[in-house]
Design a protein around this nucleic acid. Sequence first.
DNA 1: CGTCTCCTTGAACAGCGTCAATAGCCGTGG
DNA 2: CCACGGCTATTGACGCTGTTCAAGGAGACG
Lengths: 240, 240
Amino acid sequence: MIENLNSDSACERCELGAFTIYGPTYSVAMPNIKARRLAIQRVETGKILIPEGSAPEKIYSIRSGWAFRYKEMPGGRRQILSFLIPGDLTLFESLIVSKFSPPYAVKSLTPVVLCTFAVGDMRQIMNATPEQSRELEVAVLGYIANLHRRIADLGRRNAHGRIAQLILELEGRLARRRLVKNHAFEFPLRQEHIADATGLTSAHVNRVLSELRKTQLIDLEPRRLRILDHAGLARVAEEG
Amino acid sequence: MIENLNSDSACERCELGAFTIYGPTYSVAMPNIKARRLAIQRVETGKILIPEGSAPEKIYSIRSGWAFRYKEMPGGRRQILSFLIPGDLTLFESLIVSKFSPPYAVKSLTPVVLCTFAVGDMRQIMNATPEQSRELEVAVLGYIANLHRRIADLGRRNAHGRIAQLILELEGRLARRRLVKNHAFEFPLRQEHIADATGLTSAHVNRVLSELRKTQLIDLEPRRLRILDHAGLARVAEEG
DNA sequence: CGTCTCCTTGAACAGCGTCAATAGCCGTGG
DNA sequence: CCACGGCTATTGACGCTGTTCAAGGAGACG
């Protein structure tokens, strides 16, 4: 995938940049971003990128691969708070408050490639132009809106509705990054991840997924998902 | 309660100011706040203060009374996202992004008294000093952290845990406003509100509350709650 | 004293969890 | 090439947690 992690040209050839938080100013800001990038590194699956309660001075931009924010809870329980897809920033809260200490941890879900920046540098990038800081604000609000939606899902939707909502949220976010082709996209989540995100058990997730398949709403192979009936899935998401 | 809503001296006599988001600079900022206040008004129970999807130019500071953010969902379902207590700002997201359009509505839970400001004025107040803007940032992060906690509650705790968490969250927030006396505080929520906040039904909330009473963890009379065994309740909140 | 709102309680039920057994996939090593 | 172990998906039986529906009670207020 990444032939040479130290390649100077990585930023120019980054097909994500224009569709991320840098979007509105990427063509202008890119040299600046490139100059401030401290490292580009590969991390394997299942590694903790950010431990809970740490106050990291670095911030990562996910060049490829998936990760997730989660909380460990008593009794071996785990709640996944959100998934991070290519182009996302880890811990973007630290752009608002320095020395931010997250109430959750971040772990890689697949092998990931991370571009590392100093928090202070990334802040300067974000404040470089009014459009850029506006974009950060919008991202913060979008994130908050997603949290609200997830609370409503977990509180008041059944298993079908929650899982359909999750699939549609991921499809929407991936589409904005141009990572959806013909309603199909990379889908590296195990059923256990879906369970931990939706507050269900993997056994029950399995039952729901096979029903969504049987009713021709989705086509799910390992690591890849295709939405066959978008309207039907949206109906399940809304009514479930 | 409020004898004269137009009294000039309201801000000076406001016992909340020092413990709200204005906290760090209240003694200095208060004249400024007072000068910019557009109105002080009373609203009765059950009124929509902010409709979903509106983009209000006014922001309210709750002088007294409670309110809540919520989403209406298909099938008559409702999810309460958070409660607003005296001293809270409605819609503080609009301090980050102007023309903010909330993905939820806000309704009064008791009669409330609101101090009204223009969003732009309130922004200026918040940016008046570094301490003050820092306080806004901390408030935003605290709000986000609460949303994360609620997702974990709804996804991975049983009814006892969710309700205990809710009680403890409210106690903590009220205590910071000096509204807890001897572990007791105003508690205007109906069981239906608790149900809509915790993703349960009011029938089941009733059963859990009577158990919390029977086990001597709380004492709950209409509109007033006392925590009898804080450690015990925290244990239920954590393990449940 | 009647009405309204909210709390309380019971009985039947269902969605989802728990536990466990089986099966498929894949990389590894012999 | 095959055997093996590890991981994930699948499926079934069973039961608990919380829902649904409904009825009754208690306090507030005009």
